[in-house]
Design a binder for these strands. Sequence first.
RNA 1: GCCCGGAUGGCGGAACUGGUAGACGCGCCAGACUCAAAAUCUGGUAUUGGCAACAAUGUGCAGGUUCGAUUCCUGUUCCGGGCACCA
Length: 1105
Amino acid sequence: MEYNFREIEQKWRQKWKDTQAYTVSNESGKPKYYVLDMFPYPSGAGLHVGHPLGYIASDIFARYKRLKGFNVLHPMGYDAFGLPAEQYAIDHGIHPAASTEKNINTFRKQLDNIGFCYDWNREVRTSDPKYYKWTQWIFLQLFKSWYNRQTDKAEPIDRLVAIFEKEGNINHPVPNSRFELPGGTGQVFTATQWAAFDEFTQQSVLMEYRLAYCGFGEVNWCEALGTVLANDEVINGVSERGGHPVVKKKLRQWYLRITEYADRLQRDLETVDWSDAMKEMQTNWIGKSSGAEVEFSLASPPTPLLGERGGAASPGAGKSYKTADNNWHILKEFGRENRKNPTPAEDLLWQHIRNNKLGFKVRRQHTVRGYIVDFAILEAGLIVELDGEYHSEEQQRIYDEARTDFLKELGLTLIRFRNEEVLQNVEEVIEKIKIAIQEQKQNSVNAAGLPLLPGEKGSGDEAAGVRGLRVYTTRPDTIFGVDFMVLAPEHELVEQITTPDQKATVDEYVAYVKSRSERERMAEKKISGCFTGAYAVHPFTGKNIPIWISEYVLAGYGTGAIMAVPAGDERDHKFAQHFGIPITNIFGDVYTGEEAVSDKNVTLYNSGFITGLPVKEASEEVIHALEENGDGVRKINYKMRDAAFSRQRYWGEPFPVIWKDGIAYPLDESELPLELPHIDEIKPGKDGEGPLSNNEGWLTSFSPSFGGGRGESSTMPGYAGSSWYFLRYMDPHNDAAFCDRKASDYWNQVDLYIGGTEHAVGHLLYSRMWTKALYDLGYIGFFEPFKKLVNQGMIQGSSRFVYRVRGTSKFVSHGLRNQYETDQLHVDVNIVDGVELDIEAFKKWRNGEYANTEFILEDGKYICGVEVEKMSKSKFNTVNPDDLVNKYGADTFRMYEMFLGPVEQSKPWDTKGIEGVHRFLKKLWRLFYDENGPIWTDTAPSPSERAGGEATAAELKILHQTIKKIEDDTERFSFNTGVSAFMIAVNELTELQCHKKEILENILVLLTPYAPHIAEELWHQLGNSGSILDAPYPKFEEKYVLETSKTYPVAINGKTRTELNLPLDITQQEVEKLVQENDIVLKWLEGKPPKKVIYVKNRMINVVV
RNA sequence: GCCCGGAUGGCGGAACUGGUAGACGCGCCAGACUCAAAAUCUGGUAUUGGCAACAAUGUGCAGGUUCGAUUCCUGUUCCGGGCACCA
């Protein structure tokens, strides 16, 4: 009886369907296990052999876990929203909903062919309104939440409003440091001010806190296509389709405030079982770095006054705020001492007003003309003093009054608080300070010309409103090596600081950069940039530093500006060399002048007060000095940016918001889902809006409850639906919640997640953030979605080529192609056997396009060229799993995909070896049947008449070795060696002519996860009932595989020369003796005694001569 | 450019914690069965030299550590993936 795989597989697929064999319940006494695949985007090309690699691996593991007694959740669905369907619609006029539906049906049929154990009752589709109702709902939760840095979690926005009403935002600073309250009054407001804000201002402020918020961001804009493009749709500044120019454009965009989660996303990586490479990629993406943000004042007025800074030799002379007289450095020492021993009240107030929290720079223990003041807000001409205990002394009071008068003469206002005032109600104190600032600011306009504050920024007319140039650096220690500053070309200051004579050059350069994608800018080897004509002032030396712009500084990272230290940074070094900027050496002999010093174990040189200090200490000193002077703050930065969450596209989830008077209002949850309207023709909207903007009727249709307004015309990105789908599988049909808390408590984290590394940062990071947000808000009970992650490698295509002789219809074989001038053409890999072209099939290919072709053969064959490329339809190198399943069966296909190599490894597809696996299954079959029928034997003599007696020791050894190997290999996802172990077992059992049911039955159970159809069939043939998935998993017993001796390799100087069979319990002395009696060893010893004999039990013996 | 992987016979790969390099399969060669072919079965197969025993070489490349390195370290080349609107 033959192995008829077609009949068997079809039969069992139907039976499993009929018996609902893979339906999973949320109620079970068994322990749970959740195995998940990254769900596919149903592309029009259908499934190719690369897709199922991960699915087969997870299917094996899911079945294995089920056999081991777990209640296994193993679902599947479709990531069905996305750009390709939309593009297809634009090109072919087929609606995305229709093409997606069609593609899903194809995918499903293909998946079914392979015999997966998915519980299809739980299928999800992200484009289904029943599903995206909850995507929208989660968006609304994010919109209605903010991140409380004090409790370190997301909380409802109502709570923030309550806080504002009580104390303003003094304890909860605005996340975005560039934010300005209306009227340019900084970032901090009091409860009174909050109450006075109008609705628009209040909502604008809240928007700055929401986890899902609206802001402005740059996109790749293609005017000719009227649409926004992805980075990889832009090549060399033009669109991939059509080659139209692409520029950056600022558009209103939705964002997710993922940066608030940066630290937790980083920290919690410790709690998951992912590969180090994967964790490292996430770590790099998050890009946590610590350093300092330094504010350089601008030299002003620009260039003409440069020479007027007299006394530049004395320290601090060039500082923009020179407020003390010649004794200032003595006083400064006092100030420094005081700073180290602040009173509790001083410290408390300082914590509330430092770091620009008032919107103004505050200096502490600042020297003013012979006096040390507690706090100085020089920009506003305000001095804040706190009483110490000694201030109650009468004499002190008189002194204080005298000082007040003196400061008044200088045009400064002094306000004074008692210590208790501060300690008891710091909010009120701050409110008073703010009010004083407001008042003083108005007055100080008149006081602008006072000699007290030479070089004060803001005093010049042109630079009015410019606070200074803020840079972020991870190397504050190199600050004495700053030779120039570099701004991102799109930095907001560029326009303001550029001098008239540099304007033309700068404008030209900015326009050039605007046409380049971020990736091009990062990958650029050529050095480009230009000088703005402006200078910044060094906070310690007072030296003027030229300000440049260059594309190697990115606007989105840090402050969009850097202090360039050529001696300590390679890119800065190249830049300086290229433009001939003199380089300051701050590393002494270590710096050769050839390249920047990257070594961090150096001491500094020529660096003022940090000369001679090592990097780390120097950094600390510099940060302290900056903070004391109010010129900078310690700062932790993240490379990660907030995630752009809107797309100017049609085929995505609509935003459940309505815009009215510039305010975004959330739709009521009862109105969800907000369904995507069906539109007949998808075309871009005006001014960069998405296609939905052409549908004015729809945009205004859901606004009546708001009394007008307009919906959002952009849609959510692809990752919206995929950021939470693993939760929906737990409770897929729930109409009252995205997932019942009971269900998510039961299934909890995904125990095993399998998918490609291409999602290393995007999808995996967003899912983690959504999970954390839902956890914070109390909707689920775990904060990491995927406990263990296994990355399957990418299956590449192996392309085949034919060579057409130019100008003819002749094709020449690969080996002879150099004798002609040829064009290389892709040929369908499916009509090539290895490298030999099936000429008849080729003639029929593409509807007989090559029917009359002649061939120039070598050795009577046409040999094709080979190249490894990405698998794609256009390269004719895709292989359809359907064809292979049809020819060899699903079991063969599954095992072959696994046999190709380690799951994690990328490799090109090659169908060649599949025969071997198919042969193995046939060989397995022949352990049960020969041409005449069943041949298995029973232990009991009757009734089968084929009694085989007890299993022999050799047979039991094979069985138990296999049990151990398969368990080990399956547990560590080494499925390729697992398949190999089955082959070895079958080969050995065949050799022993073992047909004993007792042995074979166990082998079948082991095989079930890998080849479920044949295992189930033979299991039933052996007379079992029920499903083999419910059979007990064989138990490994060591006693069957124990050995008493081992054949050791004997090496001389590490090179194996012979073997010795030795008992396992032999001692070192005995080994040494036996080794020295061995003929071959003696030959290599050449009469000398061995230097040493190394004996490692169970491993090897090495003789050192 | 930056980040993360990978490289072992003619091919896919094995060697799990530093201990016999090449398991298992493909391909190839030889043989059996057959009029013949397919299928199936048996044996061989890293390279070089040798009838053989055996010897030398050998895990991308160049070094290092070690009694011993595919495995650890340093440098380097090539290939693949990602780099924020492809999914």
